[in-house]
Design a protein around this nucleic acid. Structure first.
Length: 192
DNA sequence: CAGTGGATGCTCT
DNA sequence: GAGCATCCACTGT
């Protein structure tokens, strides 16, 4: 007889479905990197039909992880300065991903304050570049599996109300409402 | 608060 | 050589 326990982590098959299902389902899930992080409050979806996606024009050295299997990280450098973290979705070849834009800093706050050089809770992890700096995510994490250290992804503890809106900072496909936020959270990167 | 411009490096044409 | 899935400092109300 087996004892059923709540899953400790999101399994790899959580990501092996449409990015449009995965993205809203990630709101409220806790993301930790080496024990530092908190509940995700803002993400954006990028799918294969999306001109704004890095994978839209096919595989390249940079976007290689997006064409790999679901449940892995895709990390790229933004504007030559910042790192951005994506979670790869769908089966191999579909090349879709969720950009993690903000989370509520609950775990390892002192570490984040040190890395970010600010003690303002609101500015620790609100924005993809800030979040990666606070969690010390770099290009070295590109392609790593999300269900093994240093990553830890925990399911929602409670139900969350998810709001949709237009994505931030794009020049292409700006009308697609593929940004998902925890309704009312003050840790999202913008209200728009 | 809103708006602007600079930093900075890599990717792809 | 252009264009970024960004952030910060600085300006002016």
């Amino acid at each position: 007889m087996s004892v059923r326990t709540a899953p400790a982590q999101l399994r790899r098959d959580f990501f092996a479905r449409s990015v449009h299902d995965v993205a809203p389902a990630l709101i409220g899930c806790t993301l930790l990197v080496n024990g530092v992080g908190g509940p995700i409050v803002e993400v954006e979806a990028y799918d294969p039909t999306d001109p704004a996606s890095h994978a839209f024009r096919g595989p390249t050295p940079r976007n290689r992880a997006m064409f790999g299997s679901a449940g892995h990280a895709y990390v790229y450098r933004s504007y030559g300065i910042h790192w951005c973290l994506n979670l790869v979705c769908d089966a191999a070849g579909h090349a879709s991903a969720v950009l993690v834009r903000a989370l509520q800093p609950t775990h390892g706050r002192e570490e984040m304050v040190k890395r970010r050089s600010t003690s303002q809770q609101r500015l620790l992890c609100s924005g993809p570049g800030r979040l990666c700096q606070a969690l010390a995510i770099t290009g070295a994490y590109d392609g790593l599996a999300l269900d093994a250290p240093p990553f830890e992804l925990l399911p929602r503890a409670e139900p969350v109300e998810v709001a949709t809106s237009r994505r931030i900072g794009l020049t292409k496909a700006v009308d697609r409402e593929w940004r998902y936020t925890a309704a009312g959270s003050r840790f999202v990167s913008r209200t728009r």
